[in-house]
């Protein structure tokens, strides 16, 4: 089944939040998921990352360091990652940044040139593929962020008891 970009990104954010990832890193993870799947990336490393939320925080920090490096120095930043799955996610994460990025992948090394002042020129597809297993995993994690109804929320929710239908 295919989905809109926004659906996949939003589900990625909620899944990461449900896994216990802090909000900023979850937001960035969601954007990465949409970019990664839109570019034909494998679902396996996403599923693995969601099972190990610390790895998502670590990936976010590595991206932060790349951006920090780019902001201080115009030359390319080199990132080495031995694990193929984490490397793929790192590549997609950098590729999905809102700024202009030029990435080169050689063996276990990503060479990133970022222009933080210029917007990304990457296009987005109309649809993003998302397999049922990953979707289910993400939905289960996302559900952990929802608050069940209570008597208090039902009586205090917007519009509760105030429906003067005209």
């Amino acid at each position: 089944m295919t989905h809109s970009w926004t659906e996949v990104q939003a589900l990625g954010v909620k899944a990461a939040s449900g896994a216990g990832v802090p909000p900023a890193q979850a937001l960035a993870f969601g954007a990465m998921v949409a970019r990664h799947l839109a570019d034909g990336g494998a679902e396996t490393p996403i599923a693995a990352a969601l099972r190990a939320p610390d790895s998502i925080v670590a990936l976010a920090l590595r991206v932060e360091k790349v951006i920090e490096g780019a902001s201080m120095n115009a030359s390319a930043v080199t990132v080495r990652e031995a694990d193929a799955g984490a490397r793929a996610l790192l590549f997609s994460w950098l590729s999905g940044l809102p700024c202009q990025t030029a990435l080169t992948l050689a063996d276990d090394t990503i060479i990133a040139s970022l222009n933080l002042a210029a917007p990304s020129d990457r296009s987005r597809p109309d649809r993003v593929p998302l397999g049922p297993e990953l979707q289910e995993q993400m939905q289960e994690l996302a559900a952990k962020t929802y608050v069940p109804d209570s008597d208090a929320s039902r009586s205090a929710g917007a519009g509760a008891g105030l429906m003067d239908l005209d």
Binding site: A143, Y146, V147, P148, D149, S150, A152, S153, A156, G157, A158
Partner: peptide, 17 residues
């Protein structure tokens, strides 16, 4: 909210969640 997946506002000291 789990019921409708919509934003809600609660009282931290009177409601769960």
């Amino acid at each position: 909210s789990a019921a409708k997946l919509e934003p809600r506002l609660g009282d931290r000291f009177a409601e769960p969640g």
